[in-house]
Write a protein that binds this DNA or RNA. Structure first.
Lengths: 346, 346
DNA sequence: TTGAAAGCGGTACCAA
DNA sequence: TTGGTACCGCTTTCAA
């Protein structure tokens, strides 16, 4: 209502006075303490609503120790997968009245002073989705007893984690390619620093390399489009009889780069080389790519991650837990499939 | 050092005791108050460092009213432009010891309770980058005297704004197309709700529609790839003699969709139809697209936005200000250019 | 069922 | 130059 510059905010004291009760009573009534009589509660709640009362979280945090703030370390947002994750994270957290303080977004490392902001603001916990295995933020949290949950990462000490079953995803894709008659795989990975990439490749290789089928090429595409593009160029430059007949990109963005390079150099996808990716980012669904991929259950991963974090915040000494969620293969047209296309396992 | 569960955090009281001085002195020393003797300051600073003291922002906020937190409303992160903005924002803010509380990320509207979190957490100010003209967050801020700066948006009442000179960008692109001999423009816009799109189109039209050259087609592509794709299909379906000979997409993402559709239907870009976009997102630089576009000076926009917000926080009654930054045309190969390619104005 | 009062960790004004 | 102290707004015993 009031708009004057010196508008006195409604506080718990204001309320207690206009209700003629103590601040304790107001505090209890507002949080639904059972020891408050229904009549009293109703009266106070009504008053609060009418006055447009909003509790000062800072004050609450100071006395209760709980801020409702969660620190967020986000990987490179320019990879659409992280953008999806971010949107889902913010949406679900808001629904639970939780907010993120964003600590980092991007590929680079985190400044020390940034990681320490986690402590300054007394975040209740921290969510880490960056693929980098090491993390200043994780260290700071560990040293200070701040619960950590990692999404899309294998766990570290002092952290729970939820991710998609990356190895099984890689294996699914491998089985699909083998069923399509492919025998010579190329793997576009993302380096030794990415736990996901490593798992995906492991699962893939275990399922692909048998009965004479094998991996004939590996390339570190650093999880960026340009890396995939360079890999594609390298492959086209190989003698035709040495080239892989299919490519497993550990993330869609890499696979898309490879597809563009292969086509730009005059080879066809999937006729000459099949390409499969991982993540199921929206861009991969475009007709131009239509990349066969493995969908991570992002919404479920976020839900589980938030739950895990909440549990850990409520009961700090719960044992670390790591959960693997099953994803699903998404078949499009970037890879040849067996005639009939029916026998896709999984 | 200590790691025990019951570790007593170092507070200003702890410090004052071990230094044998009052808490006021410690507080002053730590913030560089000139009335503290250098010797005393040095002693206290050393003590603080040794003890690993970190001030509790919540407490500071409670008494000083300043949280160092900035509310952030981000547009759809799945548009790479917003992803770029996010990364730049977080990087620059961290360098100034400012943190973002993320209020929203995505295309949808904001929940009331979410917007009110801004008040609960006593954010010092709010940064809005969503393209939507209306915004619950802006309303809440306006009603409560929270300074607002909009980046990539035209201003509203009670808000400063910084954006790229969208009209001039549109005009640049128009001049470029006209110099390349184009006479019939198609405009892929983003609807009446996007202030940027409107400005870009206005600038474009003013510079393009003269000497018989004119706009022959308009399509609402809603700022998404799919919208651009649909527009492209519609264009290809037109009789050849009615089709535009060039397309101005008010954002790259739209233009990319259009290019894919046009090519998928058998027409060539730029031979049959030229396409230009806006934003200069990384994806547009890929060889497959190589879209001619207009680069927004993102880093400068962010710097200016943060400065503006800081100023407004320090002096709440400063008049609203809106700043326009000049961008630059980025010529690639998605549009035919004049023979020689030299006379590109601007 | 309700109230009084002691913090939570700083800041800043007033004295000394 | 330093200390004393009253808050900031809310939570939470402890009593009544």
């Amino acid at each position: 209502m009031t708009d004057a510059p010196g508008k006195p905010r409604t506080t718990i004291v204001t309320l207690s006075r206009s209700a003629g009760v103590s601040t304790s009573t107001v505090s209890r009534a507002l949080k639904g303490d059972p020891s408050i009589s229904p009549a009293m509660r109703a009266r106070i709640v009504a008053l609060a609503a009418e006055a447009g009362y909003m509790p000062n979280i800072m004050a609450r945090t100071l006395s209760s120790g709980r801020s409702g703030l969660i620190g967020l370390v986000l990987g490179p947002a320019t990879n659409p997968f992280y953008a999806m994750l971010l949107e889902e994270l913010v949406r679900q957290a808001a629904a639970k009245q939780q907010r993120f303080m964003i600590i980092h977004a991007g590929a680079g490392p985190i400044e020390d002073s940034t990681a320490e902001a986690l402590l300054h603001y007394r975040v209740d916990g921290c969510l880490i989705t960056s693929a980098d295995l090491s993390s200043r933020a994780a260290d700071v949290c560990a040293r200070n007893g701040v619960p950590v949950v990692m999404i899309n990462r294998i766990p570290r000490e002092h952290a729970s984690a939820v991710s998609c079953d990356n190895a099984e995803g890689g294996a699914s894709l491998a089985r699909f390619l083998r069923a399509g008659g492919h025998r010579r795989a190329g793997i576009l990975h993302s380096g030794a620093g990415s736990s996901n990439g490593i798992e995906r490749e492991r699962g893939f290789t275990e399922a692909f390399d048998k009965d004479g089928a094998r991996t004939v090429f590996r390339y570190d595409a650093r999880s960026v489009y340009e890396g995939g593009y360079a890999a594609g160029e390298a492959i086209v430059a190989m003698p035709a009889n040495k080239r892989p007949d299919c490519l497993f990109a550990v993330s869609d963005i890499i696979g898309m780069g490879a597809m563009d390079a292969i086509r730009a150099k005059g080879l066809r996808v999937p006729e000459d080389i099949s390409v499969v990716g991982f993540d199921c980012i929206p861009d991969g669904a475009r007709p131009h790519y239509a990349i066969t991929t493995f969908r991570q259950p992002v919404a479920a991963m976020v839900r589980r991650g938030l739950d895990l974090l909440a549990a850990r915040i409520g009961e700090p000494k719960l044992p670390d837990e790591s959960v693997l969620l099953r994803g699903e293969i998404v078949i499009r047209t970037s890879a040849r499939q067996a005639a009939g296309g029916g026998e896709v396992a999984d």
